[in-house]
Simulated assay, not measured.
Amino acid sequence: MPFWDNARFACIVLVVLGHGIQRLTYDSDIAYALYLSIYAFHMPAFAVISGYFSKAASPSTRQMTRIITDIIVPYLIFEALWTLTKLLVEGHADPNLTQPSWTLWFLLALGIFRLVLPYLALLRWPLVWALVISVGVGYVSNVNSTFSLSRTLGLLFFFTFGWWLREHDIIRRFRLVEHRPWWLRTIAALVLAGWLFVCWRWLTVWQQIDLTHWFFYEDSYAHLTGEVHWWAGAVRLGFMALALVLTSAFFALLPRSERRWTTLGQYTMYVYLLHSFVLYPFRESGVLRGLDPTWLWLPTVTLLAVAIAFLLASGPIRRVFRPLIEPRPRWMFADAALVSTSDHRNDPTGSRRAAGS
């Protein structure tokens, strides 16, 4: 179904865009509002897609092998690259595999999601249990960014929700992709536009409560509010509901048929792992600070972010970086036949590609 590849690529564009405009938010209210509007739902949307293409059955030997080759090995490779980059650029590095560098947290999250899902699926109400975990983890201050555990558990509900949609065949039974009349798309557009207006109109309030960090799903409630308040879980629950509404509106506007860029949705791993290296010099050099006027620079950075996503998913980039992003370390395994050199990985959201693509 081309829709899901379209959704994958649209989401990875939002990831690049969010990281690209982050430095603009210090000097531009409009950029900050756009940043908030994106961060409210783009990673929950990714988690939903990831869960939709995940299976809850006990993993086979080959599936366990793929967790090593698709997640753990790339994580180690790119942590090493980030250590080298910081050493060369900043003159120092503090390598620590328990603290993922920048975007690498999502690799660990995917691994944990897939390990936890078979156990959740055994329970009578897996969605309820996932929701309890995602909301309840905020009350536990010693669950933190180590191995990105706090963020992973905070987003666990969205991953489980995606799996639940597939498990109960909700998308097909209710024709949620095929049947999207004009009035539904209009409502979806109004919802997204309305949220962007809310972000801009009450920006001072959002800055005061540090809304961005609520959307990271990373910090405990004690860190976010100064102390543990009983009502903090209800706040997160509200933001989670908002993320589902915005994700649904975003998906409703995506094309369901194939486009020229549809196949790029099968290569989001390349964009995900490489874009941070492209943006790193711009973010750290300060060239994105103090850019004025906003009406010129915000669209410019937006277009560049989209261009970066297209470039990093292109064939030439894939051929050059495939050994790093799709490693096949047969030497690591007692049974080397478990690692096929012609077998391509799942991308970060669980997409499967045919061999030779």
Rank of each mutant, 00 (worst) to 15 (best):
P2S: 03
F3D: 05
W4T: 04
A7R: 02
F9L: 15
Y26W: 09
Y26R: 07
Y32C: 05
Y35A: 03
S37Q: 01
I38Q: 07
A40R: 03
M43I: 05
M43Y: 02
A45T: 15
G51F: 09
S54H: 06
Q63S: 13
I71N: 07
I72K: 02
P74L: 06
I77V: 11
L84W: 06
K86F: 09
K86I: 00
A93C: 12
N96K: 07
T103W: 00
G111C: 14
V116D: 00
P118H: 08
P118A: 10
R124L: 11
P126C: 11
V132T: 13
S134N: 09
G138W: 05
Y139M: 12
S141G: 14
F147I: 09
L153G: 01
T160G: 04
F161K: 01
L165V: 03
R166V: 01
E167H: 14
R173I: 08
R175G: 07
V177M: 12
H179I: 12
W183T: 10
A189N: 05
L190K: 00
L203A: 07
D210W: 02
S220I: 14
H223Y: 12
T225P: 00
E227L: 11
G233P: 02
A234W: 09
G238P: 07
M240H: 01
L244H: 02
A249C: 01
F251M: 10
F251P: 05
S257D: 10
R259K: 11
W261E: 04
W261P: 00
W261A: 07
Q266N: 15
S276P: 00
D292M: 00
W295K: 00
A313C: 04
A313M: 03
I317W: 06
R318K: 05
F321N: 05
P323W: 12
L324W: 13
A334K: 02
A336G: 06
A337M: 07
V339S: 02
R353T: 08
